[in-house]
Amino acid sequence: MMMSALWALCVAWTLLVSVDGQLTAGKINIINNELAYRYGHIQGQVAMAFNLPSSFCDNSSSGDLDNILKGNEESRVQNVLNKGDVYTDSIRLAAATPLKHNTCSDHAEYRLLYPAGNNYVTKLQRDSNTECMVFFSLLSPCTLKCLNNNRPGVSILESLQDFSFWKAGYKAFVFEKIYIHPYSPCNKEQQKLQLITQIHQNAHLIPFYRCDGNNCCNCASKPADQNNPCLADRLPAQC
């Protein structure tokens, strides 16, 4: 399965009204067009943290990322991920895929965000006045482990505090598909409600967006119930 979400974002962000301040729909659309062009063929579930200059987020234009992400070619990133390692240049980009163990796996976003205060995302932090963060995950964080308050050893909830480094309007957490954990004691609808509840509770740290190739929704802009458009099988034309 190709990393379809980044390709989808090429279109999806054009329909977004705004992202907290400086990151407008047009700017995010350009950013994700550029990211999709570079990394759209990485296969399977992947999480990628992009630490971009805030000047680019303020006034993005095609071609800027050639210099910003120089040295982070897709083939180079893919080669590292194929070995089961986390890719990072320690300045602009960190990327991970799930790491499988005998009976379980470390999820991609967990590998970038754990432990809180000392992870691959915090290692990208340089200057909050000159940087913005776009954190992408093909799948939403699961509610059995990653967004579970009762499992601190595998949860990323505490790590979401690390996004406070970037100013409001200069950060976004983007996912395409809702991940339903097959071993959760909760059914699909319960897991979806758990997801939207956690998104609402943590949106002040970083805004969460779901994009499907045709539309993008700010998941905390609507109530945390089963009617939230981010929980729909297909996102509505207007969120």
Score class of each variant (00 low, 15 high):
S90H: 15
K27A: 13
K145H: 06
N32D: 04
R210I: 08
F136K: 01
D89S: 07
S221R: 11
Y110T: 06
P223F: 09
D64V: 14
K167Q: 14
C57R: 07
M3N: 10
G169K: 06
G84E: 06
P152M: 08
E131M: 10
N67C: 07
K177M: 09
S184N: 12
K171C: 00
R76W: 12
L35V: 09
I196E: 03
C230M: 07
A168T: 15
K70T: 15
Q78V: 09
E109R: 02
V17T: 11
L112M: 10
N51Q: 14
C211F: 13
C10E: 06
P223A: 12
V46S: 02
K171R: 01
N29W: 10
H107G: 04
Q201M: 11
Q238S: 15
L205I: 01
L112C: 09
D225H: 00
V121R: 03
L16T: 07
A5D: 01
R38F: 07
C186S: 05
G26L: 08
K222Q: 14
N228E: 11
S62Q: 09
Y87T: 00
A25Y: 12
L16A: 08
G40D: 13
P53N: 06
I30D: 13
M3E: 06
N51H: 15
N228L: 09
N129V: 04
L124C: 03
H181T: 00
M2F: 14
F135I: 01
E176M: 02
N218V: 05
L69M: 06
N228C: 10
T130S: 13
N79P: 04
D212H: 13
R38H: 07
W13L: 12
A108Y: 09
N29C: 12
R92S: 08
F56R: 00
P98N: 05
H41M: 13
Y110M: 03
L9A: 14
K167L: 13
H107Y: 05
Q191Y: 00
E158L: 11
Q226L: 15
L195G: 06
E176D: 03
S164N: 15
L235A: 08
L9Q: 12
Q201Y: 06
A96R: 03
I68E: 14
D233F: 12
F135R: 00
V11Y: 14
Q201R: 10
D66V: 13
H41V: 10
V121Q: 02
A25S: 15
F175V: 10
K222A: 10
A172G: 06
K188D: 10
A95M: 08
Y114I: 03
N228D: 12
D233I: 15
K83M: 14
L35T: 05
L9Y: 11
P229L: 10
K27C: 10
L6Q: 04
G63H: 05
S54P: 10
C219A: 02
L16Q: 08
